[in-house]
Simulated assay, not measured.
Amino acid sequence: MTDRIPQVLTIAGTDSGGGAGVMADLKTFQMRHVFGTAVVVAVTAQNTVGVQNFVSLSETMVHDQFKALADDFTIKACKTGMLADAEHVRFVVHNLKKYHFGPLIVDPVMIAKGGAQLLADDAISVVKQALLPLATLITPNIPEAERLSGQTIKNRSDMQQAAQKLKQLGAKNVLIKGGHLASQAAADYVLLADGRSLWLETPRFETKNTHGTGDTISACIVAELAKGYDLLTALKTAKQFIYASIANPIEVGHGHGPLNLWAYTDGYQEENDEI
């Protein structure tokens, strides 16, 4: 009876402003009707304007959080977000190998919306060598995909080439988010494990209220996988979830505001099923 409700996990940093990180993940899980748990890797002092400070948790505390969840919950899918530095990436990898928490979505968070660095430079190689091979799906935005693939991305062709390189690093499936490209559509490129590829597109909505977009889309994918949907269906649902959340903005804070997670309903996809 204890595993009838899909249970999921986010492994990331907090956001005291509530728009990104663990807070955004847990809100998304709740909106998608799964039960969210968390391993907190770092705590940030943050708002919509930027990240003012952060501190990483001790190795013991990270390990103990993983053990506490493994002892009591049936985790069906999980994701990573902010992992801070090479040492903490290694802590996370150790536990992901130790415990079975279902499909792993890696959101390789590097830079906050306000520009603060959330992943140390020396951690990039550890992510590539140790974390990506564990990933069911990796969900970088264009700057993150550039750092991981080692190439510049200026157009759709570059996105396709970068996805191939990320897959060669060990990620089974790749989603490169195209929000940073200057184009009329918000186009994301998907390269699947079986070699199939596709574009997920929605109209571009101009707004500064996009704080937590990467966290939210990856958390939505985790939720849909935990409910038993296949990856492609989960990706399409997540794309519509994000589009609804951006296209129906709320005004919170004085900087890059958070998404409107209330905007999406299950009927929304039926009305916007062109993806």
Results as ranks from 00 to 15, higher is better:
residue 54 F to N: 12
residue 59 E to T: 15
residue 96 L to Q: 04
residue 79 K to A: 02
residue 95 N to A: 11
residue 105 I to S: 05
residue 54 F to C: 09
residue 92 V to R: 11
residue 104 L to I: 08
residue 68 A to D: 13
residue 74 T to D: 01
residue 60 T to D: 05
residue 47 N to T: 06
residue 93 V to M: 07
residue 110 M to R: 04
residue 87 E to P: 00
residue 106 V to H: 06
residue 84 A to C: 09
residue 57 L to S: 15
residue 86 A to M: 01
residue 103 P to W: 10
residue 70 A to L: 13
residue 52 Q to E: 07
residue 52 Q to D: 11
residue 72 D to M: 14
residue 68 A to K: 14
residue 45 A to K: 02
residue 78 C to I: 11
residue 109 V to H: 00
residue 103 P to K: 04
residue 91 F to R: 12
residue 59 E to K: 07
residue 100 H to D: 12
residue 98 K to F: 03
residue 51 V to R: 02
residue 97 K to L: 02
residue 49 V to T: 06
residue 69 L to E: 11
residue 53 N to R: 12
residue 89 V to P: 01
residue 56 S to A: 14
residue 98 K to M: 15
residue 116 A to E: 11
residue 95 N to M: 15
residue 102 G to W: 13
residue 58 S to R: 10
residue 80 T to I: 14
residue 80 T to N: 09
residue 89 V to R: 01
residue 101 F to Q: 06
residue 85 D to N: 03
residue 101 F to S: 07
residue 51 V to E: 12
residue 94 H to C: 04
residue 103 P to M: 09
residue 90 R to L: 05
residue 79 K to D: 13
residue 86 A to C: 02
residue 74 T to V: 00
residue 44 T to W: 06
residue 47 N to I: 02
residue 105 I to A: 15
residue 74 T to E: 05
residue 72 D to E: 13
residue 52 Q to V: 10
residue 47 N to E: 08
residue 82 M to T: 03
residue 104 L to G: 06
residue 117 Q to C: 05
residue 93 V to K: 08
residue 54 F to L: 09
residue 59 E to A: 12
residue 58 S to F: 10
residue 92 V to M: 06
residue 91 F to M: 05
residue 115 G to A: 05
residue 48 T to Q: 04
residue 91 F to W: 10
residue 95 N to Q: 09
residue 117 Q to H: 04
residue 103 P to G: 09
residue 95 N to V: 00
residue 83 L to N: 03
residue 98 K to Y: 12
residue 79 K to F: 06
residue 107 D to C: 05
residue 73 F to W: 13
residue 82 M to P: 03
residue 90 R to V: 05
residue 103 P to H: 09
residue 69 L to T: 11
residue 119 L to H: 01
residue 98 K to S: 03
residue 118 L to Q: 01
residue 55 V to A: 04
residue 108 P to L: 07
residue 81 G to Q: 01
residue 48 T to C: 10
residue 53 N to H: 12
residue 50 G to I: 08
